Simulated scan of single mutants.
Amino acid sequence: MTSTQQRQAEEFHRLHDDLLILPNAWDPPSARMVEAAGAAAVATTSAGVAWSRGVADGGGLDRATALDAAARVIGAVTIPVTVDLEGGYPGEPGGVETAVEQVIEAGAVGINLEDSAGGALLPLAAQAETLRRVRKLVDSTPVRLFVNARIDTFLLAPAGSTGPDLVAATIERARTFVKAGADGVFVPGVTDPALVRDLVAGVPAPLNLMVGRGAPPLARYAELGVRRISAGPTLTLSAYRQVRDWAGAMLAGSLEDVPEGMEPGPLQAGPVR
Rank of each mutant, 00 (worst) to 15 (best):
S52R: 06
I171N: 00
R227F: 02
L199T: 05
Y89N: 03
L19E: 06
L22P: 00
V100T: 05
A174H: 02
G59D: 12
T236C: 07
D183G: 07
V34F: 01
M262N: 09
T162A: 10
R213M: 04
S254W: 06
W246L: 15
V49K: 00
V200C: 14
A249H: 08
G59R: 10
V83P: 02
R213T: 05
A31D: 02
L207N: 05
G253F: 09
D192H: 15
V138D: 00
I74W: 10
T2N: 15
P193M: 07
S3G: 13
K179S: 14
S238Q: 14
V178M: 10
D257T: 14
T162N: 08
T162C: 08
A117L: 12
V185R: 01
S230C: 09
Q8T: 04
V96T: 15
A64E: 15
M262E: 11
A50R: 03
G202K: 04
P217F: 03
A56S: 12
V272N: 11
T98N: 14
A201G: 14
M33H: 06
G163F: 04
I229H: 01
P259T: 13
P206C: 07
A76K: 10
V167K: 00
V34H: 00
G270S: 11
A222Q: 14
L121P: 00
R175A: 08
G94N: 04
W26Y: 13
R228E: 05
L61Q: 00
G270R: 13
L22C: 05
L131V: 15
G48W: 00
S230E: 00
S30Y: 01
R228H: 10
D62I: 04
A47M: 08
L131N: 07
T141H: 04
V185G: 01
L255C: 10
L145K: 06
D198A: 15
D183W: 05
L122H: 05
A149K: 00
V34L: 04
D17A: 07
E97I: 12
L224I: 11
V243L: 15
P266Q: 03
G270Q: 10
Q5H: 13
A69Q: 01
A215T: 09
A269K: 14
F146L: 15
A231C: 07
A70Y: 02
A194N: 13
P271Q: 13
Q5C: 13
P80G: 04
Y221L: 03
G59K: 10
L199E: 02
G189I: 01
G253N: 09
S140Y: 09
R175T: 14
T98H: 13
T153Q: 01
T130W: 01
E223K: 15
F12C: 00
I79M: 04
A120M: 11
A182S: 01
D245P: 10
L195V: 11
E263Y: 11
R228C: 02
V147I: 15
